[in-house]
């Protein structure tokens, strides 16, 4: 007997189609394959920290493309309608991003022995996605430009400084805990922060104080 989808199921399927979930997870799979196949190939990058160009493995760069596809899908769809929808559209988006990041982490952990930069690539995916979600609080259409610019800046300024510090994580090949601080914090902040409200001086003005109804 053919299973008949319930209303919620159909809604989730529609949401997944509108938000290009299949494309996002396909991009993740392709990125994982690329990290495994050519992740160790290095790109020479001019570096402020040393005279010779720093060698950055492709495995640290590839996650940016997967993250861009993921963020494009997660933030697709009519934002205004989703903001007033009866269905928990934002929770769906949060779930999609968390699932993608968790899948990347599991893949990184599972292949930690065989793929040298697997965990660093997973960390970069989390970080790039996190930065994009934070940037989306300000402007959705610019969200992925921010992690791209951050990655290049970190590679130029931080690459070649040894084990790396908390801020140049996109260029750090090891996956030591300090390099996870910014990616995890950015993702947590981006997924839980208020939509359209970036708490910076140049962000949109907040509404005035609420007036309590008098009893």
């Amino acid at each position: 007997m053919r299973h008949r989808a319930s209303g919620s199921e159909r809604a989730v399927r529609t949401w997944l189609r509108v938000h290009r979930a299949a494309g996002a997870f396909l991009a993740l799979a392709v990125a994982a394959g690329l990290v495994a196949a050519v992740g160790e190939v290095t790109v020479p990058v001019p570096s402020l920290a040393q005279d010779d160009p720093a060698a950055i493995p492709l495995g640290l760069i590839v996650p940016l493309a997967a993250s861009a596809v993921l963020v494009r899908g997660a933030y697709a769809g009519p934002a205004d309608l989703e903001a007033v929808a009866v269905r928990p559209a934002r929770a769906h988006r949060t779930c999609m991003i968390i699932l993608a990041c968790a899948a990347a982490l599991l893949a990184g952990l599972a292949a930690a022995e065989a793929v040298p930069y697997g965990m660093a690539a997973a960390r970069n995916l989390v970080g790039f996605t996190g930065l994009a979600t934070v940037a989306a609080m300000w402007r959705r259409d610019l969200a992925t430009a921010v992690p791209a610019a951050y990655m290049i800046a970190a590679m130029l300024l931080g690459a070649g400084t040894g084990p790396g510090s908390w801020w140049d994580w996109p260029a750090v090949t090891s996956a030591r805990p300090l390099t996870w601080a910014v990616p995890v914090a950015a993702l947590a902040f981006g997924l839980t922060g208020r939509e359209g409200r970036l708490p910076v001086p140049w962000g949109p003005r907040r509404p005035g104080p609420r007036v309590r109804a008098q009893p």
Binding site: L64, A65, R72, D141, A145, A148, I152
Partner: peptide, 11 residues
């Protein structure tokens, strides 16, 4: 979309 085009072209 610029979410795809801008980072992909940059990198």
């Amino acid at each position: 979309h610029p979410l795809l085009g801008v980072p992909l072209l940059l990198v």
